[in-house]
């Protein structure tokens, strides 16, 4: 395959994303005294205990009170600090939406909200904890930045850019071990998608630790069949990199989106909005098809909801067929 990135060394072991998150925040906080961390009784789950060990006075565990955590973060921001509150995605988005909308975003404050365990990564916590809607909710907030890094290298780079840019943001964080995709020298820019693989037949636009890896694997399967797919890591879902979407729509004539989220409101919708207005081509959306979550292993849930490389190849073939028959992407 035609890789456009420096790839991680083969033997690289998979670090826990939560450890990468906390370690990088700790490094950033050594340089910037404005950085503080909050959690709502999930510091052990979110890995931020290491931050707390280094900066106990700059860590606030507010107990099981997510709305208050976001409100306190807004107040901290109003005094010039840069708060990073975290909780599971389901609580970050559903439970605190009004607080995050008004006290942080409408007030134009600088609250860096992190939601962990997105979508099927919630696994054994089941349907109540399985957020398939958080990006959809967040995307309705004017001028917010929404970011879902796919691996430890991009997480570190994007986390720094989120801290450096004034304004509230939502980071969708996979907290479990993830094999690095990128080599250490690879660079990232908030708001600019990353082309991982170059191919002329179809483009897979994916986001997040699960689906970017599945998209690369799908491209490998397709390559064995003689189909050349492009793969884009759309780590920033808002603002979406519209120019890149248009460029690859023009180049490959078909777009397949892949997300660990409802197809309504998330990455698939964001890409569809760009295509509809700027360069209509056939699109298919792999993601959750208007369903609630349920309990199971992550592997089971990926199969259950079609978040697999195999399903991506099925959808990619159908898209390519629809291109040649010019009947649209509906069959």
């Amino acid at each position: 395959m035609k890789y456009r990135i420096e790839r991680a060394p083969e033997a690289e072991k998979a670090p826990e994303m939560r450890a990468v998150y906390s370690d990088e925040l700790t490094r950033m906080a050594e340089e910037d005294t404005r950085i503080v961390v909050l959690d709502a009784d999930l510091m052990r789950a979110n890995g931020t205990e290491s931050f707390k060990a280094r900066f106990p006075e700059r860590t606030f565990d507010v107990g099981v009170a997510e709305a208050n955590m976001v409100g306190i973060s807004a107040g901290l921001s109003a005094t010039g600090l840069i708060p990073f509150p975290a909780t599971f995605t389901c609580f970050a988005a559903r439970r605190t939406f009004d607080q995050f909308f008004i006290s942080a975003n409408y007030a134009k404050l600088n609250v860096k909200l992190t939601g962990s365990d997105p979508g099927v990564a919630a696994a054994f916590n089941g349907g109540t904890h399985m957020s398939f809607e958080d990006i959809g909710l967040m995307r309705t907030i004017p001028r917010i930045v929404i970011c879902e890094p796919a691996d430890p290298v991009s997480l570190r780079a994007l986390l720094r850019q989120i801290a450096e840019r004034y304004g509230s943001s939502y980071l969708r964080l996979h907290r479990k071990p993830i094999t690095p995709i990128y080599g250490e020298s690879e660079t990232f820019e908030l708001g600019r998608g990353k082309v991982i693989v170059e191919g002329e037949d179809v483009t897979i636009i994916a986001a997040g630790a699960i689906l970017v890896a599945e998209a690369i694997r799908a491209a490998e399967i397709l390559e064995a069949e003689g189909i050349a797919a492009s793969v884009i890591d759309m780590h920033t879902i808002k603002p979406i990199d519209a120019d890149l979407v248009v460029e690859y729509a023009r180049r490959t004539g078909a777009i397949l989106t892949a997300e660990n989220h409802q197809v309504q409101g998330g990455l698939g919708s964001a890409v569809a909005e760009v295509l509809t207005e700027r360069y209509p081509v056939p699109q298919r959306r792999v993601g959750i098809q208007d369903e609630f979550g349920e309990v199971g292993t992550q592997e089971y849930l990926q199969e259950r909801f079609g978040l697999t490389a195999e399903n991506l190849t099925v959808q990619a073939r159908a898209l390519i067929a629809s291109k040649s028959t010019k009947q649209g992407a509906e069959q």
Partner: peptide
């Protein structure tokens, strides 16, 4: 309901 949380954050920040 949101004001007192913000005030708590400000007091902590100060």
């Amino acid at each position: 309901g949101q004001g007192l949380s913000a005030a708590v954050g400000m007091a902590l920040g100060h």
